[in-house]
Simulated assay, not measured.
Amino acid sequence: MTSQSAAPATAGQMSDYYSAMGALLQMAWGDNFHFGYWDGPSDTATIDEATDRFTDMLTERLRVGPGDRVLDLGCGVGKPALRIAARTGASVVGVTINARHVELATERARAEGRADQVSFRHADAMDLPFEDGSFDAVLAFESIIHMDRPTVLREVERVLVPGGRLALTDLTPLTDESNTPKSFRSLMGASPGDESPSGQGGDPDIATLISAGAWPGLLSDASLTLDELNDVTEHTQGTFIRLFENFFKYRREFEREHGITVEQVLDSAKSGAPTDGVGCLVVAAHKP
């Protein structure tokens, strides 16, 4: 059996975390809360172009069309879900633990005239409010790092129809080949006496990173069949330099609007984060 020993933060803690981080990401990065994909150092694609390109790559792996239903786990403010709907004709349901993001995503769907095709719900991906076999495909764009992978994969298997597909991106430590999850913590929203997975008091873990080698076992344990496991780190590395440049480009505007400094938000994300870098995986699977 493959296990994930480090426990992620609670849904409430993650909602609080993204209330601040989500606002900063929107200002500095746009409405796609995920890595960009560049073909190489000479690729001059903008952030919007590179993040939309990555959305399109995951969409191709879903293999959906008109009449199909797609579930977007950790949908952010809705941009990928709406792009999938527009490009494929499928209907999409997005879920997020942040109620404000549900509101923003719903407003976007109405503004784009797709409220009948795309909807958003306040829900926990590890305890989905949907019946068995409700969806033809499931997308998880960098959201699974905040979840207990075995739990959410079992939920994915449950809500997929037979033959249904899963496409996701996951983050991985660059130099750790073990299958033991690495966790890092948030300094935000922690209360005295909060327990870490090791049983020590402290700040909640906001994410866990695992090696690529853990994925075949994780999927097998969830009764899902692995179709693709692809390390795309060389194409996503341009994310970090652009992201941090923009964090500080927009810092004064952000601090005026939100009453919190950029440093405070970034400190919440980097406590205990791997110092040797983070890679990116594309994983595709299906339910037999």
Score class of each variant (00 low, 15 high):
234 E>W: 01
170 D>N: 10
167 A>Y: 03
216 P>H: 13
238 G>C: 05
182 K>H: 13
222 A>W: 05
236 T>C: 14
224 L>E: 07
184 F>V: 02
165 R>E: 03
187 L>T: 14
181 P>F: 14
239 T>N: 12
163 G>A: 07
167 A>D: 04
215 W>G: 00
193 G>K: 02
163 G>S: 05
211 S>Y: 07
219 L>V: 01
162 P>F: 05
244 F>D: 03
173 P>Q: 12
243 L>W: 11
234 E>H: 08
186 S>F: 08
218 L>K: 04
171 L>Y: 11
223 S>L: 06
202 G>Q: 08
239 T>A: 10
173 P>F: 12
221 D>E: 15
189 G>P: 01
187 L>S: 13
164 G>N: 04
232 V>Y: 06
229 L>Q: 10
222 A>G: 05
200 Q>A: 14
178 S>T: 15
238 G>M: 10
165 R>A: 08
220 S>M: 08
204 P>H: 15
225 T>C: 09
181 P>W: 09
237 Q>Y: 05
175 T>D: 14
223 S>D: 15
241 I>C: 01
211 S>N: 14
194 D>A: 14
203 D>W: 03
238 G>I: 02
212 A>M: 12
189 G>I: 09
200 Q>I: 02
243 L>G: 08
225 T>R: 14
241 I>H: 04
203 D>A: 15
240 F>I: 06
226 L>A: 13
244 F>N: 10
219 L>F: 05
240 F>Q: 07
218 L>C: 08
200 Q>Y: 06
230 N>L: 15
228 E>L: 15
184 F>Y: 15
192 P>R: 12
193 G>W: 02
194 D>M: 12
187 L>E: 05
226 L>V: 09
227 D>Y: 01
208 T>H: 03
236 T>I: 08
174 L>H: 03
171 L>E: 12
186 S>M: 14
225 T>L: 10
210 I>N: 04
171 L>D: 07
215 W>D: 00
165 R>P: 00
195 E>D: 02
200 Q>P: 00
217 G>N: 05
169 T>S: 15
232 V>D: 03
169 T>M: 08
165 R>C: 03
193 G>E: 01
203 D>C: 14
185 R>P: 00
223 S>P: 00
206 I>N: 10
231 D>E: 10
172 T>N: 01
243 L>E: 12
164 G>V: 03
191 S>T: 09
162 P>R: 09
190 A>I: 02
191 S>C: 01
205 D>W: 08
205 D>P: 02
228 E>W: 02
179 N>P: 00
179 N>S: 12
204 P>Y: 13
230 N>A: 11
205 D>S: 15
186 S>L: 05
188 M>F: 09
231 D>A: 02
209 L>H: 04
183 S>N: 08
242 R>W: 04
179 N>F: 02
189 G>H: 07
208 T>Q: 15
228 E>G: 10
241 I>R: 09
216 P>W: 13
174 L>F: 02
167 A>T: 05
203 D>N: 08
228 E>Q: 15
174 L>E: 10
195 E>T: 09
177 E>K: 10
194 D>P: 01
176 D>Q: 11
240 F>G: 10
180 T>K: 13
225 T>D: 14
236 T>S: 15
226 L>T: 04
182 K>N: 04
244 F>W: 09
203 D>L: 01
221 D>A: 15
228 E>Y: 01
206 I>T: 07
241 I>S: 12
